[in-house]
Design a protein around this nucleic acid. Structure first.
Length: 268
DNA sequence: ACGCCCGCCTGTAAGC
DNA sequence: TGCTTACAGGCGGGCG
C-alpha cells in the first residue's frame, strides 16, 4: 500500500477534501484536517509499522492506519461512492483518494510540522520496524532472552516489533518451524536464527505478491486489485488442509487471544 | 511483565 | 426462510 501511494500520489496536489462522519478523523476537528490538506502537494510516502505516513510539502504528515477493515482506493471523480466511504481527497488533474472503512477502527489525521509526537504518542512506543529495522539474529536473540511472553504474542506486539499482525506471525512461525506458544526466552540460538530468517523471507515475499487478500476482499491495492500471497499461505486460514511440507492437517487454535494456525508436525 | 477479557464497529457466515 | 450467534487482517485499557 505504501508503494501504491508513492507511485500514485508523489508530486500531486490536493485540491479538496471531504470528510463524512466523525469516527475516521477523530484526533482533530475534521475541518482542521480538511484545511491542513487542501492545497498541499505530496512529497513522499513512508511506513512505520502499520502506519502509513505521507509527507506533504509544508512538512506536515498525513497519517493513516487501516486497522481491520480500512481501505484506500484511487478512483476517478464521479465513480460510484462505496458504502462506508468516510473521506474523499480530490487531486488536482483528476483522481480521488477515498478512505473506505466499514468497521471504522481505522483512522486518519494530519500532524502539523513537528507535532507528530504530541498528536500520536504511540509512535514513540513502536518497536523496530520488522522490515526496515530488523536487527541481526544475535541482537534479536538478546532482545528475546529476557522476555517471558509467548513468541507469537511478541511478534504481534507493536511495542516490540512493528508491522507484523495475525496472518504474518503465523506464516513466519511456520517458516521458522516454531510453535507460537513457546516462551520467547525458550528459543535456542539456532531457533532465533531460523525465526530471523523467516521474518526476512516471508515479509518481502508477501509484499512482492502485494499482500494477502482474504475472501471478503477488505484488503486490496489502491486500484482495488487483490494481492496473491493468500495463495501462498502455508497455514493461515487453512485449518484441516494439508501442511504444504508434511501433509499433516493444519490445526486451528487460540493463541495470544487470536485465532491461530500451525502444523503440528513441522512446528515445535 | 504477562495472559486474558472487553470494547470499539459492521458485515458475513454458520447454526438452529 | 429467518433469527441468533460467533467471528473477522488491530489495538488500547483494565484486571488478576
Amino acid at each position: 500500500m505504501r508503494g501504491d501511494l508513492e507511485r500514485c500520489l508523489v508530486g500531486r496536489t490536493i485540491s479538496s477534501v471531504a470528510v463524512t462522519g466523525s469516527r475516521s478523523v477523530r484526533r482533530q476537528h475534521p475541518e482542521d484536517f480538511r484545511k491542513a490538506l487542501t492545497g498541499r502537494s505530496v512529497r513522499g510516502v513512508e511506513r512505520r509499522g502499520k502506519y502509513l505516513v505521507t509527507t506533504l510539502d509544508d512538512g506536515s504528515l498525513l497519517v493513516v492506519h487501516l486497522r481491520m477493515s480500512g481501505q484506500l482506493l484511487l478512483v476517478e471523480p464521479g465513480a460510484p461512492l462505496r458504502p462506508h466511504t468516510h473521506a474523499v481527497v480530490a487531486l488536482r488533474g483528476g483522481g480521488e483518494l477515498r478512505f473506505v472503512d466499514p468497521r471504522t477502527f481505522g483512522e486518519m489525521f494530519v500532524a502539523p510540522p513537528g507535532r507528530l509526537a504530541e498528536m500520536a504518542p504511540e509512535f514513540d512506543q513502536l518497536g523496530f520496524d520488522a522490515l526496515q529495522e530488523l536487527p541481526g539474529a544475535a541482537t534479536l536473540a538478546r532482545l528475546l532472552a529476557p522476555r517471558r511472553a509467548r513468541i507469537k504474542a511478541l511478534l504481534m506486539d507493536q511495542h516490540f516489533i512493528a508491522g507484523i499482525g495475525n496472518i504474518y506471525s503465523d506464516e513466519i512461525l511456520f517458516a521458522a518451524g516454531l510453535l507460537g506458544d513457546r516462551p520467547a526466552a525458550s528459543l535456542s540460538a539456532g531457533e532465533v536464527r531460523r525465526l530471523h530468517r523467516a521474518i526476512r523471507a516471508v515479509l518481502p515475499e508477501a509484499i512482492a505478491m502485494r499482500g494477502s487478500t482474504l475472501p471478503d476482499r477488505r484488503y486490496t491495492g489502491i486500484s482495488g486489485d487483490p494481492g496473491t500471497y493468500q495463495d501462498r499461505h502455508s497455514v493461515y486460514g487453512r485449518a484441516g488442509l494439508p501442511c504444504p511440507r508434511c501433509k499433516a492437517p493444519v490445526r486451528r487454535s487460540k493463541l495470544a487471544g487470536r485465532t491461530s494456525f500451525h502444523c503440528p508436525r513441522c512446528q515445535t
